[in-house]
Design a binder for these strands. Structure first.
Length: 423
RNA sequence: GGAGAGAUGGCAGAGCGGUUGAAUGCACCGGUCUUGAAAACCGGCGUACCGAGAGGUAUCGGGGGUUCGAAUCCCUCUCUCUCCGCCA
């Protein structure tokens, strides 16, 4: 959620920034400022009346103490009118307040100055490409066929047990999952991230905290009986650890990591994009989350990017990094870098990681703050990234490391898998 | 699932319907003392919003009610704890 203060003070800059998302927020913001203006006036009036009532109540108390019953009772009669006004104004102020919140929820984050304007993925900027497309001297096979050939993943069996999008990993396929998770966690630990194992279901407040609610309500699985949501990413429980927290000093840098399964309804997906491991309802992911002083979030983002680069390089994957354009940047994000690995077999780039800085967009909702040296409270910045999500990494590994003899396991992974080839 | 108890400031823990935004202790910050530290003593110490400021308002789990006045009374929801049952 954008800070109201910022919209008041930098209206033009906010509008200009949102244009990069192809959003003309003029109407919303004009309305918002109107409501805000009225809210402030009404609130001032309300508080004046409350003050008056408080004053009278105090006087009545004193009169009773002095035994002046009659005067006290006389004073009581003065309040009826004020109470009536107070009640009306209270309703009005609450209504305006709710209206502002509603309007604020509609506004996405303002993109960072580096974010290019643009509509969709075509406008993203490739900032780096490492490696080159592999040339095959045989027909490259897509991962879903490889998974079948080597009996690694059974998609049909998953349909039987649960439904489409819930694959069953078996044998070396299962072990590869476990190896990747261990590898990613250990790399994160080496980079200074503390490991957490959070709950896989969260309450409503947590959903609002990181911005999944109310924007993406339909994307999460919902447990009606207990009013809980299955997490779509470890970002939700990990970041919410710091909901309603005021860090005691401005000297902090919180680095968390966690492996969790992730659950996404993916309503609206269809066709080729969902083939094989490309899009699942349940998948595994190691997430990295950071909570930073505003002055450090730029550096933190760089570090996270370097971390993900390191992972992909250790896995021997050819990849590129995109700086997403305004239109492709997520609702809550101020700037997002996507990592994509090229799949020759599918003849397309697969998104394997997304690293974002949210600035104060999440911490506004989370009420995540820190104390400055002069004892003021100030909002923290939050960031997060996948490091990494498994399915498309598995797809990439299978497709890019395939040989006629089998799939070669990257060196870095072997100590976790215990085997060096899948055949 | 059944029965009971409870929810107050960073923590612990008082609180009669009327200067209680809230005693007290601990923690924390500043100071005095000390060569330094500890101890002792003095002072400070929640959050949010409105306001240029003075100041005002709200907040004792959430919501509603009674009252001139609610942390204190009533209703309701949520959560926590204890015991019993069930179970990994």
């Amino acid at each position: 959620m954008l800070e109201l203060q910022r919209i008041r003070n930098e209206k033009e800059a906010v509008l200009e920034g949102l244009k990069k998302r192809n959003i003309d927020a003029t109407a919303t913001i004009t309305k918002l400022l109107e409501v805000d203006q009225e809210w402030r006036l009404s609130k001032a009036e309300l508080e004046g009346i409350s003050a008056e009532l408080n004053q009278i109540a105090k006087e009545i108390g004193d009169l009773f103490k002095q035994g002046k019953q009659e005067e006290a009772n006389a004073a009581k009669s003065k309040t009826a009118d004020l109470k009536e006004k107070e009640s009306t104004l209270k309703t009005k102020v609450d209504g305006l307040d709710a209206e502002m919140t509603q309007l604020l929820y509609q506004l996405p984050n303002v993109p960072n100055e580096l974010v290019p304007a643009g509509k969709n993925e075509l406008d993203n900027i490739t900032v780096l490409e490492v490696g080159s497309k592999r040339i095959y001297d045989f027909e490259a096979v897509p991962h879903w066929d490889l998974a079948k050939k080597y009996d690694l993943i059974d998609f049909e069996l998953g349909v039987k047990i649960t439904g489409a999008g819930f694959p069953i990993y078996k044998g070396k396929g299962a072990k590869l999952q476990r190896a990747l998770i261990a590898f990613f966690l250990e790399e994160a630990e080496k980079a200074g991230y503390e490991e957490f194992i959070p709950p896989l279901v969260v309450n409503e407040a947590s959903g609002y905290g990181t911005g999944q609610l109310p924007d993406k309500e339909g994307q999460m699985y919902y447990v009606n009986e207990d009013d809980l949501y299955l997490i779509p990413t470890a970002e939700v429980p990990l970041t919410n650890i710091y909901r309603d927290v005021i860090l005691p000093s401005e000297d902090f840098s919180i680095k968390m990591t966690g492996y969790t399964p992730c659950f996404r309804r993916e309503a609206g997906s269809y066709g080729k994009d969902v083939r094989g491991l490309n899009r699942l309802h349940q998948f595994d992911k190691v997430e990295i989350v950071r909570i930073e002083h505003p002055s450090n979030s730029e550096k933190a983002l760089e570090e996270m990017i370097d971390h993900v680069k390191g992972l992909l390089e250790k896995l021997g994957l050819h990849y590129r990094i995109l700086r997403l354009c305004g239109g492709d940047t997520g609702f809550a994000s101020a700037m997002t870098y996507d990592f994509e690995v090229y799949s020759a077999a599918q003849e397309k780039w697969l998104e394997v990681s997304s690293v974002s800085r949210f600035d104060t967009f999440q911490s506004t909702r989370l009420k995540l703050r820190f104390k400055t040296a002069d004892k003021k409270t100030q909002l923290c910045h939050t960031l997060n990234g996948s490091a990494l999500a498994l399915p498309r990494i598995v797809a990439s590994l299978l497709e890019n490391h395939q040989t006629p003899e089998g799939v070669i396991v990257p060196e870095a992974l072997r100590k976790y898998t215990g085997f060096d080839i899948i055949n």
